[in-house]
């Protein structure tokens, strides 16, 4: 079974972000970058499927862009976890794109690879678009199931059964292979790269594919092909100072209820 996982490197979730002077981007100098946590679920799921079936291979794909610091490192992390092959899509023409051009580039690359199942994180935690995976499925003309927290693969019947958490219940969806899945927290516990795995990954060569490799027109991708333009980023409003309500517990609760009702207007 051929499994391909698309990953992105993002600033670590506990990073403190600052805006650039023009307010259209974040400052990336000094931030630490990690594999997007939802993408780690995707990598882990692919590795577990390969292990359950006792055969297959796992390829990891990533796209270099201005938003990413060191995609090679992210790919090596996946190799260290146990992936078989890593491909980096890297070309100056890919710069300045949006989620649509990202999907275009990934789809063009994926057409050059054979696969039974594509796995994505449900979203990258940097821009939170959650749009790339499902656009790739659309571009490739294959079914997708998004935000999956349980997955079963039926190799005989060439199908997957995916569970999705929905309001008040679980939705169970079956799809024929090849299909695309986006992964949600709860699907698995991603493994830690082992020390021998890290040593091995360091010695591996990464494949680098550029625009020519995937035969895509430069005006279709990058800033030329982007349909979205980021106008402005704003930090969330600063949190006001908290208040401690003195008094004994019973009176304090009364006062708290009054404040929540009359001032905060949340109850």
């Amino acid at each position: 079974m051929k499994l391909i996982v698309c990953i992105k490197q993002v600033p670590a979730t506990e990073s403190k972000l600052a805006m650039t002077r023009d307010g259209t981007d974040i400052e990336r100098a000094g931030l630490t970058f990690v594999v997007n946590p939802y993408d780690e679920f995707a990598v882990e799921e692919a590795l577990q499927i390969r292990e359950r079936l006792g055969s297959g291979d796992v390829t990891v794909l990533s796209l270099r862009s201005h938003a990413v610091q060191n995609p090679e490192q992210a790919l090596r992390t996946c190799l260290a976890m146990g992936a078989d092959r890593a491909i980096l899509l890297s070309d100056p023409a890919f710069d300045g794109g949006d989620n649509y051009t990202t999907a275009l580039v990934l789809a063009a690359a994926l057409r050059r690879l054979s696969f039974d199942l594509l796995l994505f994180g449900k979203q990258a935690v940097d821009d939170d678009d959650g749009a790339v995976g499902i656009q790739v499925a659309e571009l490739l003309g294959i079914p997708h199931v998004a935000v999956v927290n349980k997955l079963e693969v039926d190799r005989q019947n060439k199908t997957v059964v995916a569970h999705r958490q929905i309001e008040g219940g679980i939705e169970v969806v079956e799809a024929p292979l090849p299909a695309l899945i986006t992964c949600q927290k709860g699907l698995n516990e991603p493994r830690y790269p082992s020390l021998p795995g890290i040593m091995n990954a360091k010695q591996r060569l990464l494949e680098v594919w550029n625009r020519e490799t995937i035969e895509i027109a430069s005006e279709a991708v990058g800033s030329g092909g982007a349909e979205l333009k980021l106008v402005r980023l704003e930090p969330p409003p600063p949190r006001p100072i908290g208040r401690i309500i003195p008094d004994d517990a019973a009176a304090a609760v009364q006062e708290l209820v009054r404040l929540l009702h009359e001032e905060a207007k949340v109850i």
């Binding site: 698995n188 516990e189 991603p190 493994r191 830690y192 082992s194 020390l195």
Partner: peptide
């Protein structure tokens, strides 16, 4: 041990 338990390595 959680599902992703990984024992330490003797280096």
């Amino acid at each position: 041990r959680k599902a992703n338990y990984q024992p330490g390595t003797n280096i």
